[in-house]
Simulated assay, not measured.
Amino acid sequence: MQRHSRIYIAGHRGLVGAAIHRQLQQQGFEYTLTVSRSELDLRDSQRVGEWFERHQPEYVFLAAAKVGGIVANSSYPVEFLQDNLQIQINLIHHSYRTGVKKLLFLGSSCIYPKFAPQPIKEEYLLTGALEPTNQWYAIAKIAGIKLCQAYWQQYGWCAISVMPTNLYGPGDHFDLQNAHVLPALIRKFHEAKIHQHPQVTIWGTGTPRREFLYVEDLATACIFLMQNYHEPEIINVGTGEDLSISELANLIKKIVGYTGELCYDPSKPDGTPRKLLDVSRIHQLGWRAQTPLPLGIEKTYAWYVTHAQGNP
Rank of each mutant, 00 (worst) to 15 (best):
Y112I: 06
Y112M: 10
Y112W: 09
K114D: 03
A116T: 02
Q118T: 00
P119R: 03
K121Y: 08
K121T: 10
E122T: 15
Y124F: 14
Y124V: 06
Y124A: 10
Y124K: 09
L126S: 12
L126T: 12
G128W: 03
A129Q: 07
E131H: 04
P132S: 08
T133C: 13
W136K: 12
I139M: 08
I142H: 02
A143H: 13
A143Y: 10
A143L: 10
G144R: 01
I145E: 06
I145Q: 06
C148Q: 00
W152R: 07
Q153L: 13
Q153G: 07
A159R: 00
M163Q: 11
P164I: 03
N166V: 05
G169I: 05
P170S: 07
D172T: 01
D172E: 05
H173T: 15
H173A: 11
F174H: 01
F174N: 00
D175A: 15
L176H: 04
L176Y: 08
H180A: 14
V181T: 13
V181D: 05
P183N: 02
L185Q: 06
I186P: 01
H190A: 08
H190I: 04
Q196L: 12
P198A: 12
Q199E: 15
W203T: 13
T205D: 04
G206S: 00
T207K: 15
R209Q: 10
R210I: 02
E211V: 01
F212W: 07
V215M: 05
E216Y: 08
